[in-house]
Design a protein around this nucleic acid. Structure first.
Lengths: 196, 196
DNA sequence: CTCGTAGGTCAACGCTTGTTGGCAGATTAA
DNA sequence: TTAATCTGCCAACAAGCGTTGACCTACGAG
């Protein structure tokens, strides 16, 4: 709201604080992802970032502000219009798997969303603003878009839950290609198949 | 561990404490389900049960003991040998939906499992001891049982997550029969179809 | 050199948490 | 009636929480 991270427009001297900000955000992502919102304490995050807890407040105002700044909300979903019609399921599953493995932000959002009402609201927002439009591109009947997108969300978030949060051993053992082969047709059917 | 709730075997005088125990457990289930482990405070639970927080400690030893006593672990999964081979998917989805709607215990386990490592371990135990054996009844290749059961868990827990924890509106709007019709074939395929 | 300011530490605040021990009625047994 | 055993409340504890404000230090601009 107040300031942007990259304000290196005209002032060449790169503020020393940029490194600190980054360290705090990295530590926060890790803690939120592994501990959830309540147990990820500002003191622990500050300790990880090797600074004083009060700096976190100075930089991000509050714990909520820190969380908002630490987790990304952009799923960077592919443009399904450029994907062969019968490949959208596999494409989505593959994209989601890449997203979850590339960093811990999504694990953080899911963990927090499961305990915190504000976090749940945030996930509902992601669903509405990012998954719904993509589903609209491939669903036959516009009226069924929300339901079909919700079914996809259930399958994809269920995979993330078992694999990255609960860490069920068999869910972790499955290779990426196996998961795409298993879940791809499911998502494909939820999005494009006629209603059962 | 120490005592059972129903010890009305020979001692007819029903202890007055039984009602209190029950009130505490009911309040605990509600709080754990709606707030998760960390935010469900003993004080709040005691307030709901209209007793002193110290009573909770006397009856259950600790917060962990209370949680263990409050949430059930029995999924009461049906004997799939008695279900027509091509109906097991629909039967499982229907059974799970009933389970989640009949009380809040499963919501509590899921919410806690998502934030608390001990809770996650408990969910892994439920998977191993209750879902795996059932999957073994219908899976063709014994070697694939864990993977196939994990896929089912992902789909079913994903449904629970979106519908009962995150409360995505479209996931809540779907009727029970619609969910069975959509997810039944998916679970059926995960359990019985040949590997993709 | 001086000075304003950004980056950072320290100590404390008010509050909530899980947990404990002591004490008061009620209920039961002898 | 007396003694023992439940059932319960009260007050407090140590620890941890998010958050605040005073203070110190370095440094680039004037």
């Amino acid at each position: 709201m107040t300031a942007s991270t990259q304000n290196d427009q005209s002032a060449p001297p790169p503020r020393r604080s940029a490194a600190t900000r980054h360290a705090i955000l990295a530590a926060a992502r890790e803690r939120f992802a592994s501990d959830g919102y309540e147990r990820a304490t500002i003191r622990a995050i500050a300790r990880d970032a090797r600074i004083d807890p009060s700096m976190v407040m100075r930089y991000f105002g509050s714990k909520e502000g820190l969380f908002a700044a630490a987790v990304a909300l952009d799923l960077r979903l592919p443009d399904l219009a450029r994907v062969p019609r019968d490949e959208v399921g596999r494409a989505l599953v593959g994209h989601f798997l890449g997203l979850w493995e590339e960093n811990e932000e999504l694990t953080a959002v899911l963990r927090v969303g499961a305990t915190n009402e504000a976090g749940a609201e945030r996930m509902r927002g992601i669903f509405q603003e990012q998954l719904l439009p993509v589903a609209r591109q491939v669903c036959p009947d516009p009226e069924q878009v929300p339901a079909r997108a919700a079914l996809c969300a259930a399958q994809l978030l269920g995979l993330a839950l078992t694999r990255y949060v609960l860490r069920l051993p068999p869910a972790r053992a499955l290779a990426r290609e196996e998961l795409v082969a298993w879940l791809g047709p499911t998502v494909q059917r939820y999005l494009t198949a006629p209603s059962p």
